[in-house]
């Protein structure tokens, strides 16, 4: 009967359709938005500790993660039949490595040890225990492997291990940069001449104030 298609009935029908139609529509949308897969660190109800990222079973070695190179990964070398702190770097340090080392040092170390390695970083200024500076004699003599050990194990009761924050190669680059910082505090005039020899164009800039100084 055509008379039954009054606006009121039409509206009622539309509302009914919307009401029943929308719920599955929203459910589908939600199901696509949040699919049954885990994004990194996503929560799960399946395991008691709520972690979808499962901790490795002790002793597990994943493919490609067998770390036999004790120089690179542990910072030790076989010296006189005994494993001691490595005296050298496991790979050749280039200028790019040093720059990366500087970047990583400024991110991870400078907060306590200070940008110039004097142990007066911002966190120390805010009340953390005084961090050692790198310019004392014992640390200037310490081999790269010693610093690697500190990054791996932490130091004393204040400094936590940093291996989970800094990738392996970057640890060595940081050490190379620390060594550079140490050298910078005890730079000799001859070092400057060596730098000038490397970059003759910049050497001119170095010379002029030096000559000016002589005239005073």
């Amino acid at each position: 009967m055509t008379t039954s298609r009054s606006p009121l009935m039409m509206t009622a029908a539309l509302l009914f359709l919307l009401g029943t139609g929308c719920k599955p529509l929203f459910d589908i949308r939600k199901a696509m938005y949040d699919q049954p897969k885990f994004e990194p660190l996503e929560k799960t109800d399946f395991f008691g500790d709520s972690r979808s990222a499962r901790p490795l079973i002790e002793g597990t070695v994943a493919q490609g993660q067998l770390r036999l190179n004790s120089h690179l990964y542990e910072g030790v070398e076989l010296i006189d039949g005994d494993y001691r702190s490595a005296q050298t770097y496991p790979f050749e340090i280039t200028m790019e490595d040093l720059e990366r080392g500087q970047e990583m040092y400024n991110i991870h170390c400078s907060v306590c040890h200070g940008l110039s390695g004097h142990g007066n970083g911002m966190v120390v200024q805010r009340g953390y225990a005084k961090a050692p500076g790198f310019h004392r004699d014992a640390l200037r003599q310490a081999p790269p492997g010693y610093f690697y050990g500190v990054i791996m194990n932490g130091f004393g009761k204040n400094m936590m291990p940093y291996y989970h924050q800094i990738p392996v190669e970057d640890r060595w680059r940081i050490i190379a940069y620390i060594k550079t910082l140490q050298r910078s505090q005890f730079a000799q005039v001859e070092d400057l001449e060596a730098v000038d020899a490397l970059a003759p164009a910049e050497a001119v800039e170095h010379e002029s104030p030096e000559h000016a100084h002589e005239h005073h």
């Binding site: 400024n106 991110i107 991870h108 400078s110 911002m122 805010r126 924050q165």
Partner: peptide, 8 residues
């Protein structure tokens, strides 16, 4: 603002 980089 304390000077800690994002990547820390």
């Amino acid at each position: 603002n304390m000077g800690i980089d994002c990547r820390y």
